[in-house]
């Protein structure tokens, strides 16, 4: 248990270092990248709470992020702007205008409620069936966001969200989410879930109702995704449903899997690593497009490289960089080993 505190401390220190570091550099671009990274951190750590404990992949995570982003948008776009931003909005909603913080919580709650309703039957399915229905769920959430024009402005870009997310706020939310993920991992639900992943029969014998435990983890993950969506929405201030679809799903899964889905440390490490790789590759793609040969035709290169990296990691280190021990655990162990040696 002691090493869990150490892990929390180290991971929060990493978040703080990212935040302070980017401030010190004082370049706008880095500020943007750092904020994006911290928001990705919220999403990836959120996904870890489900995937890391249940062992099941969820493809729907980004869909819940979208629910959160749109919920917060409807709740915070200033009343006088709503006429323009959401022309078909239901009458009674046009007057809504709450504080961004409250809206962020509401975003989490809405995502969690939707998750609670739709995921209950899904968690009873066999592993593979649960995973592929989560994929179907992503598509359905996307369809709904794309077509429920009254609330989302349809496939068109929704604009007018107040810009209330800045780097420090993103850092604070990321730190809180890391603590929640670690607490959940050490909670009874988290422990039973992880036990069930190793041995379903034994965990069931301990009285674990596995579908129910999975369901709880799924709701928590959706809540965090919803919060993350709101956070992102108020950073970017305008977006369309296609921001919550396959490309982004691929990205957060890559981050989590490369880092190691079983640990919060892995989620953090993977997010940082893949964000840097992603920005670097995007830069390269841009540079290529500026040359005569590229001529604006280079698209998809980043994803190709990431996909290859992901396959390579799965072959060489299927558990990711941090396959089963949190950083605090690793450090205390090496310290103890050293003590024994000396």
């Amino acid at each position: 248990m002691k090493h869990a505190y150490l892990t929390a401390l180290i991971l929060i220190a990493v978040v703080a270092a990212l935040a302070v570091g980017s401030q010190l550099l004082g370049i706008r671009l880095y500020d943007r990248i750092a904020t994006n990274l911290l928001i990705s951190l919220v999403l990836v750590v959120g996904l870890q709470t489900f995937m890391g404990n249940s062992g099941l992949l969820s493809f729907a995570h980004i869909g819940f992020m979208g629910l959160g982003a749109y919920t917060s948008a409807v709740l915070t776009i200033p009343a006088q702007m709503k006429g323009m931003a959401l022309p078909d909005l239901y009458e009674f909603m046009t007057v809504l205008e709450v504080s961004p913080l409250l809206a962020m919580l509401a975003a989490g709650v809405v995502a969690a409620l939707v998750a609670a309703v739709v995921a209950y039957p899904l968690m009873r399915l066999s592993d593979a069936a649960a995973v592929i229905t989560s994929f179907a769920l992503l598509v359905v959430l996307y369809t709904v966001m794309n077509n429920w024009s009254a609330l989302t402005n349809g496939p068109r870009t929704l604009f007018g969200l107040p810009k209330t997310t800045d780097m420090p706020i993103a850092a604070v939310v990321a730190a809180i989410v890391i603590v929640i993920a670690l607490l959940f991992k050490e909670s009874r639900t988290g422990k039973l879930l992880r036990a069930s992943r190793e041995d379903e029969v034994a965990a069931a014998a301990l009285g674990a109702n596995i579908p129910h435990l999975r369901w709880r983890a799924f709701i928590l993950a959706a809540f965090i995704a919803g919060v993350g969506g709101a956070l992102w929405g108020h950073f970017i201030t305008s977006f369309a449903p296609k921001a919550f679809y396959l490309k982004e799903t691929f990205l957060i899964i890559t981050m989590l899997v490369i880092g190691g889905a079983n640990t919060v440390t892995g989620a953090v490490a993977g997010t940082i690593l893949v964000t840097f790789a992603y920005e670097g590759l995007r830069g390269t793609e841009g540079a290529l497009n500026a040359t005569a040969i590229g001529a604006g035709q280079v698209v998809g290169l980043t994803e190709i490289v990431l996909a290859l990296a992901m396959i390579a990691v799965m072959i060489v280190k299927p558990g990711g960089l941090f396959p089963n021990r949190e950083i605090g655990h690793i450090l205390t162990r090496t310290r103890r080993k050293k003590e024994i040696v000396s």
Partner: peptide, 11 residues
């Protein structure tokens, strides 16, 4: 890996 391979082919 198959999800990654799918992304690879598409891209």
């Amino acid at each position: 890996t198959s999800f990654a391979f799918s992304n690879l082919l598409q891209n």
